[in-house]
Design a protein around this nucleic acid. Structure first.
Lengths: 244, 244
DNA sequence: GAGTGGTCTAGACCACTCA
DNA sequence: GAGTGGTCTAGACCACTCA
């Protein structure tokens, strides 16, 4: 490849390399959990300097697509890793250590996307959705009620038993069973009065305050692939966020 | 300076440069809004290569302490800039464009830190606090009730008229009037029943759901300098968060 | 000891800003 | 045109991992 020029759509070399690496991630040439080739190998492959490859890899590592380990290599991020478990999970107990709640499936059924859901998931109105409802529990006590909506076209054959196989670790299942990797999520958070169903499941009075977290989850190319609503009893838990 | 060695407490050169630059930021050698010296000048000053200075500056820019502008220079971040206004402000309307609420001061009084507040703010129990309460409004309609607690030792002479001078832009005032720069915040979010005072101010029924945001704000060296509780009416607004 | 990523340097050239 | 940060290269050496 050549040095940058002054063409109208100038794009630095390292950004072009980033795109090439991302394509190999999408195509599955390098799979979650595996090592990608070393910087030197990639530099030869793309015919650029090691420094340029390094800059591309560093940005992908900043975006949590790759994980670098000095002395070992660079690895494709995977939701099955322990360290990813809490990445998109921001609910923590007020007292004591962070715990990962257990999921208990309530239902897995089919539905149709209304116009709002269609716009959010960038699918057609009326397209088939997989709708999963579940309760999240900590030490047997219900913490949150959750409804997850997925475009059925992306998750063919998804059913209750498959969810239970992965013990409700949905993003891990998306990755392993459907090759769908969740890379980022956008959340909108409100305080709402508990609706009847959630109140009953959580064992709180109807209309008592619950934390409502609406999430859109995205895969490569900022493509939305999951919508979910979490209704969380925050009397002894909280949602945590750091802003730098 | 010399190349890295294998001493027990090995610290890369660029991290040492980061510390030196940070010290100049703390000391006020370079003030908010001003440009710092160019990379070449700093490389000469610290007797390292431009690449090493660059790496230090890039990390400080990633942490939002500095702002780089190609062709112009590198500037010290300031809360008085328009672009910082929404940085720590995560409440947005469900419909329409992001707006910045107006603050309306309710009270500015003195209090004493109880043991919980003392632990959070890393001060002594019984130390004097400045306690500010206010309402945030959008187009005249109350959106949130807020209580802010500050160590009085850091904010000498703070009173209602000074807050009003800065039209309730607290972080801008901290920076300009007290040299206290807020660099990061940690928030814990819950859904709570509206307490009497907030319910009255916000014009919502007592015990109706409000979003409760407890925030600790930190300056250099991860030193906490502000605690605040925001009680927000989220019927037409939400708290937004992106996780990558 | 071989292989990986991490740091550091020196130097070239580019894109952008401003006078 | 001078000055800034941004990209890219080639090469040296270091810290870390694993056999």
């Amino acid at each position: 490849m050549s040095a940058p020029d002054s063409s109208p759509a100038f794009k630095p070399l390292y950004q072009q390399i980033k795109i090439l690496i991302t394509q190999s991630l999408i195509s599955g040439e390098w799979r979650p959990g595996e090592a990608i080739p070393s910087e030197i190998e990639l530099a030869n492959r793309y015919n650029v300097s090691q420094g340029t490859v390094r800059k591309a890899i560093n940005e992908l590592a900043d975006e949590n697509l790759l994980i670098r380990h000095q002395g070992k290599g660079t690895f494709v991020a995977s939701h099955t890793e322990e360290r990813r478990k809490f990445h998109f999970m921001r609910i923590a107990p007020d007292q004591g250590r962070q715990v990962y709640p257990d999921g208990e499936l309530l239902a897995c059924r089919r539905g149709k996307a209304d116009s709002v859901m269609a716009r959010l998931l960038e699918i057609n109105t009326g397209a088939t959705l997989v709708v999963v409802t579940r309760v999240m529990k900590v030490e047997g006590r219900p913490l949150a009620w959750e409804e997850v909506r997925l475009p059925a076209a992306l998750f063919k054959g998804l059913n209750a038993s498959r969810i239970n196989e992965f013990s409700c670790r949905l993003y891990s299942m998306f990755e392993s069973a459907y090759g769908v990797r969740i890379l980022q999520v956008a959340e909108q958070i409100k305080a709402v009065p508990a609706p009847a169903e959630a109140a009953q499941v959580l064992g709180v009075p109807e209309h008592s305050p619950l934390l409502n977290i609406d999430r859109l989850a995205y895969t490569f190319g900022d493509k939305p692939v999951e919508w979910r609503r979490t209704l969380c009893d925050t009397r002894e838990f909280h949602y945590m966020n750091k802003i730098v």
